[in-house]
């Protein structure tokens, strides 16, 4: 861009508009975080689906992977923050949305883990139990904890929230489209059983994070190559 070229008022306004657009349209992300979570959540969901569908045990809870993935995510976040070429005003808002999303997922998992046992204990103290009774008498009656309704649909719904916010705020269409598809998955999941909900959850992670992650990664690598030329 030449330094002191004569330019008209109209050209000045055009230049201002184009530069503001350039600044707004530059969503800088390495894509690694999206790829990490897209992989972890889809793998955990598909394994859960297969485990429920074919009744086998892998010896540990596959969802522990999500807990383990927090460690590399912390390093990724610190590194990305350090290496960011630009800090935008809406970065803090988007980061806050993802933080709240993480807390919400943790809250839902905690609810799913704790509430049935606690409710079972409370109703037992009240003097009654929930009994599983087999009508054909093939198995003896069994005391069970009250079950929570399938939360898998709720997880799918919650997955869409930060993805849609990021897509809209950062004007990043792959995430907006991914979140849109996720809302359709949520509606579908209301009509399917738990194992199929897991399958839908796996596809959700692919459209919300894995595919946008690949797109972000490619964009990031292309930008790095261009700036090194």
């Amino acid at each position: 861009m030449p330094e002191e070229k004569e330019f008209s008022e109209q050209e000045s306004l055009q230049l201002i508009a184009s530069m503001i657009k350039k600044a707004k349209g530059s969503y800088h992300d390495t894509g690694i975080g999206s790829l990490l979570w897209g992989t972890v959540i889809s793998v955990a969901s598909f394994v859960s689906y297969l485990r429920l569908e074919y009744q086998f045990d892998i010896g540990f809870d596959i969802w522990l992977l999500a807990l383990v993935a927090i460690v590399p995510q912390i390093f990724i976040s610190i590194r990305e923050k350090k290496n960011a070429q630009v800090k935008q005003y809406d970065d803090d808002v988007v980061n806050a949305v993802w933080l709240v999303f993480g807390l919400t997922i943790f809250g839902l998992s905690f609810y799913q883990l704790i509430v049935p046992g606690v409710t079972g204990k409370i109703i037992h103290e009240e003097g009654w139990d929930l009994i599983k009774h087999y009508n054909d008498g093939s198995k003896p009656d069994k005391v069970i904890n009250p079950f929570t309704p399938s939360l898998n649909s709720i997880y799918i719904l919650v997955y869409a929230i930060p993805t849609m916010v990021t897509g809209l705020v950062k004007k990043f269409k792959p995430m907006t489209i991914g979140a849109g598809i996720t809302y359709l998955f949520f509606i579908a999941s209301c009509y399917t059983n738990s194992s199929n909900d897991m399958l839908l959850g796996g596809f959700t992670a692919i459209v919300c994070w894995f595919i946008p992650g690949i797109i972000l990664r490619r964009k990031y690598i292309a930008q790095r190559k261009a700036s090194n030329v």
Binding site: F7, M19, K22, A23, Q88, D91
Partner: peptide
């Protein structure tokens, strides 16, 4: 000035830039 205006227009939309 074209370049200075471009820089200012860019910076006005972001918190800070490299």
């Amino acid at each position: 000035s074209q370049l200075r205006l471009a820089v200012m227009s860019l910076l006005i939309g972001v918190k800070e830039a490299d």
